[in-house]
Amino acid sequence: MKNLIFPFFILAIFFISSCCYEEECGECFSPPNYFVFELVDSDMGENLFTNGTFNSDDIEVLDASDHPIEFTFIGENEINLIEINTIGWQTEIVNYRINIASEKLFDLYVDAKRLYEDCCSFTRYNEIEIGNVEFSLSTETGIYTIFVG
């Protein structure tokens, strides 16, 4: 009988300690940041969709193999932003090209690593490069302003 009590005791301790660990961790999930771009005239500072220079139907986001990449155009209330929310859900390196009417505006390179630490999953961006164009990043909104012209 004593031989059976010890294994049950060990199992009970294991289940109790794993329960407590899960309660301490809880649910913690951080989605990756979206990449949001505003295209503006480099001289006037006007949004190029708002002023009619560009048409949202002419936007293309392509990978290095020219496969289309999912994106969203936010046009409500004349906001007129391009949003890419597919980057960083997994560890990956992406090379995207953003075109308007088949003309390249800029390149986007991202080295993203999906991590799990201290009970939380999150994305660390090792490197982000926007090539072939002048740009600025708003630290308040996270929007990249791309200067065209």
Rank of each mutant, 00 (worst) to 15 (best):
L108F: 15
A112Y: 00
R114V: 03
V36T: 14
G88F: 07
V40D: 05
I143M: 07
I59A: 15
I98H: 03
E76W: 09
D66W: 00
F37P: 01
N95K: 06
P32S: 05
E78M: 12
Y109T: 00
F73K: 08
G45L: 08
N51P: 03
P68E: 13
F15W: 10
C25D: 02
F147K: 12
T86F: 00
M1F: 10
D43H: 03
L11R: 04
G26V: 12
E127I: 01
E134P: 00
S136Q: 09
F73P: 04
P68C: 07
E103C: 00
P31Y: 01
E103T: 08
I130F: 03
Q90V: 11
S56T: 12
P31Q: 07
G142L: 08
N3Q: 06
C28T: 02
T72L: 10
E24M: 12
F106N: 07
E22I: 02
E83N: 12
L108H: 08
E140M: 05
I59N: 13
E27A: 09
I13V: 15
T50N: 13
T141H: 04
S121F: 01
P31F: 05
I10Q: 12
D43G: 03
E78Q: 07
T123G: 05
G88A: 14
C28A: 11
L48R: 14
F73S: 01
K113A: 12
G52V: 04
E22K: 11
W89P: 05
F15M: 08
K104T: 07
L115A: 04
L48K: 15
S18R: 08
I5E: 02
C120H: 12
A101Q: 14
F9V: 03
I59R: 11
T123Q: 04
N126D: 12
F71N: 07
I82L: 15
D66G: 01
I143S: 04
C119W: 03
I10W: 02
I84D: 09
P32Y: 13
N51A: 06
Y21A: 08
F15R: 02
F135E: 04
D107F: 14
I130N: 02
L115R: 11
A12N: 13
F37C: 06
D66Q: 15
V36Q: 09
G149T: 01
S136I: 05
L48D: 07
F14E: 01
P32L: 03
N47Y: 06
F29T: 11
V40I: 15
I98N: 01
C25F: 00
P31M: 07
L62I: 14
F73L: 13
E83M: 15
F8V: 09
L62P: 04
F73M: 14
V94S: 05
L39Y: 05
I13W: 02
E76V: 07
N55Y: 09
S17A: 13
I93H: 06
Y144A: 03
M44N: 01
E24N: 06
E23N: 12
F35H: 12
T141S: 15
E23G: 01
E38W: 00
R97I: 05
N85C: 07
N47E: 01
F122E: 14
D107E: 15
N126K: 08
I10M: 11
D118K: 13
F122G: 04
I13S: 10
